[in-house]
Simulated scan of single mutants.
Amino acid sequence: MAHMQPDALRKCSDPPPGPPPGLPVRKVFRSDPEAAGKVRRFVREQLAKEEPALTCEQVDNLCLIASELATNAIRYGTEPGDSFAVVVLPTPDEVRIEVWDPVRRLPRLRNDSDERARGRGLHIVDRLAARWNATERPFGKAVWAEVAR
C-alpha cells in the first residue's frame, strides 16, 4: 500500500508536464468568446505544478480572477482579431495573474448596480485578491491580481 504525503492530499490534480514550478509562464490567446474558458484551463494547469501545492480554494479563486480579467480584456481591451496575454507568476508568498491587452485605457471599479448586467468582474477580483491594479505597458496595459499562499 502506498503512503501518501500530506501535501499530496491538498492538490486538485496531478501536475502536467511542462516548465518547472516557480517560473512565470505566459500564453497568448485570441480575443474571442471562448477565450475565458481557455484561460481558466491554462491557469489551472499551471497552478497544478506549484510546490508547495495550493489549496483547491486558492486555485479556484485564481482561475476565477484570471477569467474575469480575461473577460475584461476581451470586452474592453481588444478589437476583433486582436490577442491578449495571460501570465502566471508564482512567488514563495503569492501567485500573481497578469492579463496584458493592447488598449491603454485603465480599468476602474464601478459602483455596484442591480440595473447593469456588466461591471461586476472587478468587484469579484477586488474581493478575492490580496491586491490588484493596472499598469501601463508599451503597446497597452497589464491588469494584475495577487492571491496570498
Rank of each mutant, 00 (worst) to 15 (best):
G121H: 01
G119M: 10
F139I: 11
E146P: 01
R127E: 06
S113K: 13
R116M: 09
L128G: 02
A129L: 04
A142N: 08
F139N: 15
G121C: 06
R120C: 00
R127A: 14
I124E: 01
D112Y: 15
G119V: 10
V143I: 14
D112S: 14
D114I: 06
R127G: 12
G119F: 12
A129Y: 00
T135L: 08
A117V: 10
G121S: 08
G119H: 12
R131F: 07
P138E: 14
A134T: 07
G121P: 04
A129V: 03
F139D: 15
A142M: 09
R116N: 11
R127Q: 14
A142V: 15
A148H: 08
K141H: 07
E115N: 05
P138K: 13
A142Q: 04
A134Q: 05
D114Q: 10
R120T: 10
A148M: 07
R131E: 10
D112P: 11
D112E: 14
K141E: 05
V143T: 15
D114V: 09
V125P: 02
R120K: 03
A145W: 02
P138I: 09
W144L: 03
S113D: 06
L128V: 13
A134G: 08
V143D: 07
R131W: 06
N133I: 01
G140T: 08
A129P: 00
E136M: 09
A148W: 03
A129R: 00
E136A: 10
V125C: 03
D114S: 14
W132T: 02
N133T: 10
D114N: 14
R137Y: 05
D112G: 07
A134W: 01
G119A: 12
W144P: 03
N133W: 08
G119I: 11
I124T: 13
R118W: 12
I124M: 08
E115Y: 09
R120W: 09
E136Y: 06
A134F: 04
D126T: 12
W132G: 02
A129M: 02
A142S: 14
W144E: 02
R131S: 04
W144Y: 09
N133V: 04
R120A: 01
S113Y: 09
L128A: 07
